[in-house]
Write a protein that binds this DNA or RNA. Structure first.
Lengths: 263, 263
DNA sequence: TATCCGGCTATCGTATGCAATTGACAGCGC
DNA sequence: GCGCTGTCAATTGCATACGATAGCCGGATA
C-alpha cells in the first residue's frame, strides 16, 4: 500500500519538482483550474496535485496519506502537506483521523446513495438555470470541452476521468452562481471517489455522447427534456457504480457491523 | 479595528484558556455541536471558537484576523491558528489573501442573493424529506430546540442569533443526510455573515414564531404547505437583510469601483 | 509640491525540532 | 494456550525559528 502511494507520487513528482522551482506560472496552467497569473504557495500546489491524483483515481479510497511520504516526494516540508490535507478533508475527499494519519476517504454505500441523490437535485437546478440564460459563449465553451473529452477518449485513463467530471463543473460555472458551482464541485468530486470504490471498470465513465445530448437538450430550451436527459445521465453514472455491491466491502468493518447487530 | 478583535478575543479567551488546560471534555460540551468524548486538538478548538465568534456576529465581516493576535489570545502557536483559518476559508466564512492575512468574509450583495437562492432550494428539499419521514423523536428535538430559543430570546444577543441558525441545521440533520446537512450548514453560516453585513438590527432575526409554524406544518404532513411556510420564512429573513442596501458599502472599494467605471 | 525610490516593520509562508500519542510486539503471568 | 502489560518504533500535533513579501514612511529629486 505504501508502495502504491510511492509509485503514484513519483509519477506526479516530476511535475511537482518543476513546480517548486520557479516555473510556477506554466505548471499552474497544466493543472487546469487555475486562472492565470495566480501565484501558488507550496501548500496550494500540494493540494492541487493530491486532489488531481485522487480525482483521477490514481490514489484509491483507503490509501493512507502519510505526511512524511508525501512531503519527501514533493520535496516540501510536512507543514505544507498538512495544509493541503486539511483542505482536502474540508472538501470531504480525505479522512483525517487524529494521530493516525490521513487517508483517501472511503464513502460507504449509504453515503454514496446520499451523494447521488443530492447530486441529482443540484444538477437539475443547474440545468434549469442554464436553459433560462445560457448564451452563445457558454455553448462554445461546452463544445470545446466535449472536444477535449473526445480527444482524451482513446487515453482510457486519468485524463478522461477528470474531464468527465469537469464537464459537470463547467455546467455549474456557466450558471454564474459561485455557491452552486462550489457544491457541484464537491458532489462531483465525491462521486469520483464513489466510482473508484464501487464501480467495476470505470468504462468511459460518463459517456461523452451523453454529454453531447445534454448540450443539445440545452439548445432546445426545453426545460423538462433537458432535465430528463441530465437525470438519466446521472442515473446511468449511478448504475455503473452500484450494480455490484460485491465490491462494496473490501472493508471488513462494514461486514462485521451486520454481525454485531449495529443495524 | 485591531482593538475590536482584541476585545472579542479577550471575551472568548476565558473559555479558551480553560479549554487549553485539561478541561476539554466539559468545554467541548459548552461548544455545542460536539458528540461527547470527542477529543479536540488545539486547532479544532480555535476553529470552533472563531467560528462561533463569527456566527454570533461578534466578529463582523471585514475584521482582520491576524494570526499572531489570535495565537496570543488563545495561548497557542500560529500553527494551530493557521489550521483553523484554512478550514474556515474552505467553508467560505473567512477570506484568505496570500501574504496579507485573513479576514472575515464580506459577501457582496450579489453573492448574498446567490446564497439565499440556493438556501431556498436546499431547505425546500429538507422540508420535503422531513414531511416524508420525521418521527416522534425528531419532533421532540425540534421542540426542545425551540424552547431553548425562547429562553434565549430575552438575551437579544449572540446566543439567540446562533440558535436561530442552528434550528435550520437541526432540521437538515434530521433528514439523516450528511451531505445535505453539510451544505445547509454552509449556507446558513454564510447567511449569518450576510445578515451581519446588510441587515439593520438583527431583530429576533428568525422569529421563533416562524420556527414554531414550521414545526406545525411538518406535523400536518402537508408538503406544499410546509414548503410554503419555509420559503416564506426564508423570504422574511432575506427581506430583513436586503431592504437597505445603503449599508451595503461600508467598504470603499465597492463605491470607488463605480466611479472607476469598472462596471 | 508631487512623485518616485529605498529602507523598515509587520506579517505571512515554510522548515525543522521536540513532545505526545498510537499501534505493535515481546515477555510475563494465569 | 490465552490474555495482559510494559516497552519501542513510527507518526502525528504543536511550537519555534527563519526567510520572504507587502505596505508604510521619509527623503530625495524633478
Amino acid at each position: 500500500m505504501a508502495t502504491l502511494l510511492y509509485t503514484i507520487l513519483t509519477r506526479l513528482s516530476g511535475i511537482a519538482i518543476e513546480v517548486l522551482g520557479h516555473v510556477l506560472p506554466t505548471a499552474v496552467g497544466v493543472l487546469g483550474e487555475a486562472t492565470l497569473s495566480e501565484r501558488s504557495s507550496r501548500s496550494e500546489v500540494v493540494y492541487r496535485l493530491l486532489r488531481q491524483a485522487i480525482l483521477e483515481q490514481a490514489l484509491k479510497p483507503g490509501t493512507k496519506l502519510s505526511e512524511d511520504t508525501i512531503a519527501d516526494h514533493f520535496k516540501v516540508s510536512r507543514t505544507s502537506v498538512r495544509g493541503a490535507l486539511v483542505r482536502l478533508n474540508a472538501e470531504g475527499i480525505v479522512d483525517l483521523r487524529a494521530n493516525k494519519g490521513a487517508c483517501v476517504a472511503e464513502p460507504t454505500l449509504e453515503e454514496a446513495r446520499d451523494i447521488f441523490s443530492l447530486r441529482r437535485m443540484l444538477e437539475a437546478e443547474v440545468i434549469r438555470r442554464l436553459v433560462a440564460d445560457l448564451g452563445a459563449a457558454g455553448f462554445k465553451r461546452l463544445e470545446q470541452h466535449v472536444r477535449e473529452e473526445q480527444a482524451a477518449l482513446s487515453d482510457h485513463g486519468p485524463l478522461s476521468i477528470r474531464l468527465a467530471g469537469e464537464f459537470h463543473i463547467l455546467l455549474a460555472e456557466l450558471t454564474g452562481s459561485q455557491a452552486l458551482t462550489r457544491f457541484v464541485r464537491e458532489v462531483v468530486s465525491r462521486c469520483s471517489l464513489i466510482l473508484a470504490r464501487f464501480a467495476r471498470l470505470h468504462s468511459p465513465e460518463c459517456a461523452v455522447d451523453e454529454h453531447i445530448q445534454i448540450i443539445r437538450a440545452l439548445r432546445s430550451k426545453d426545460i423538462a427534456a433537458a432535465e430528463k436527459i441530465m437525470l438519466e445521465h446521472l442515473d446511468a453514472v449511478e448504475l455503473r457504480a452500484e450494480l455490484n455491491p460485491d465490491k462494496a466491502e473490501p472493508d471488513i468493518s462494514e461486514i462485521l457491523k451486520r454481525y454485531a447487530g449495529e443495524s
